[in-house]
């Protein structure tokens, strides 16, 4: 490499960093930096009235899985914590699977319309995506609550006497998350299907494949990067959901997000909250790494 080029490269990198510096500063102060503070707090002792006391301890991390009996000092599994973790993972997986089951046909439908229709339908998917999550969850709340539209209609039609209790159940949270995160599944699926060469289907049918065989052996393998992207995009926010379980799950059907909040409020155990946050962060990062590996391996189809 020539000296001229080396100089140009150095100047190039310097300019890139200088121009990015203000953004990096804002992010360091108000997004990335504070994450390090949580890490530190997760190794401290809880203060009596919230906050922390300075003293190194693994208690918070241990407290995620086991609890210490206050009377005899023995350790046993923290059932309540595990229930919350399990509920979070279960509901997030269910949400991911169900949004895929209904999202895939939707994305396919949009991608196979004529161009003008396609743009309009895509816009219709995008509006809810950008609409306030709170408003959308609230809309579901109004439909499924005991005196809501669904139960009122059913009673007036004489189908039931008593309202069916949906709100403040796990099912309500699942329904709400499916509703609010569906666009996150449809959009990447659409992007993948849109690039799909429909002539491959003609080739498939020409070679005696049935519709189901074409779907299973041609379409799904080729749009797999979109499926993985959509699943990650739904799974990650589902796992960290706060608003939806709070509005539809009530106080008892907590997910990790609400449980973390509890530690900083009534629970007054900031280190445990910090450790739980780190745990959630780690799960999300692992999911993202898996995604990056999958995406790179299957990138060739894109």
């Amino acid at each position: 490499m020539s000296e001229v080029q080396k100089q140009a490269d150095r100047k190039n990198a310097r300019n890139a960093w200088a121009l990015s510096a203000p953004a990096l500063l804002v992010l360091t102060v108000a997004a990335v930096g504070p994450l390090l503070i949580i890490l530190i707090y997760s190794f401290l002792l809880p203060g009596k009235y919230g906050n922390v006391e300075w003293g190194f301890s693994f208690d918070a991390w241990r407290g995620i899985l086991v609890s210490k009996d206050i009377f005899d000092g023995t350790y046993k599994l923290a059932d309540a914590h595990l229930t919350i973790f399990w509920r979070s993972v279960k509901l997030s997986l269910l949400t991911t699977v169900f949004t895929f089951v209904v999202g895939f046909p939707t994305a396919w439908f949009i991608a196979t319309r004529p161009p003008r229709w396609r743009a309009a339908l895509l816009f219709l998917i995008t509006i809810p995506f950008w609409t306030n999550l709170l408003i959308r969850t609230f809309a579901i709340n109004q439909i499924i609550r005991n005196e809501g539209l669904f139960n009122t209609a059913m009673i007036q039609l004489g189908l039931i006497d008593q309202p069916i209790v949906i709100i403040y159940t796990d099912f309500a949270v699942f329904l709400g998350m499916t509703y609010v995160y569906l666009p996150l599944m449809v959009l990447p699926l659409f992007a993948a299907i849109d690039r799909f060469d429909m002539r491959l289907l003609e080739a498939g049918y020409d070679l005696y494949a049935s519709r189901m065989q074409v779907l299973r052996r041609i379409i799904v393998p080729i749009v797999k990067p979109g499926i993985i992207a959509g699943s990650i995009l739904v799974f990650i926010p589902s796992l960290g959901a706060y608003v939806t379980p709070r509005i539809l799950g009530g106080g008892r059907n907590m997910m990790i997000g609400n449980f973390i909040e509890l530690q900083f409020g009534a629970g007054r155990n900031w280190p445990l909250g910090a450790a739980l946050s780190m745990t959630l962060l780690i799960i999300v990062m692992v999911a993202l790494l898996v995604y990056v590996r999958f995406a790179n391996r299957d990138g060739g189809h894109g």
């Binding site: 992010l27 900083f264 909250g273 946050s277």
Partner: peptide
Amino acid sequence: MINQPLMVPEIVTAVALLI
């Protein structure tokens, strides 16, 4: 760094900022 807010769950950032 720039895309970090899209990757980290909001509740985690919220807690970090609270502290």
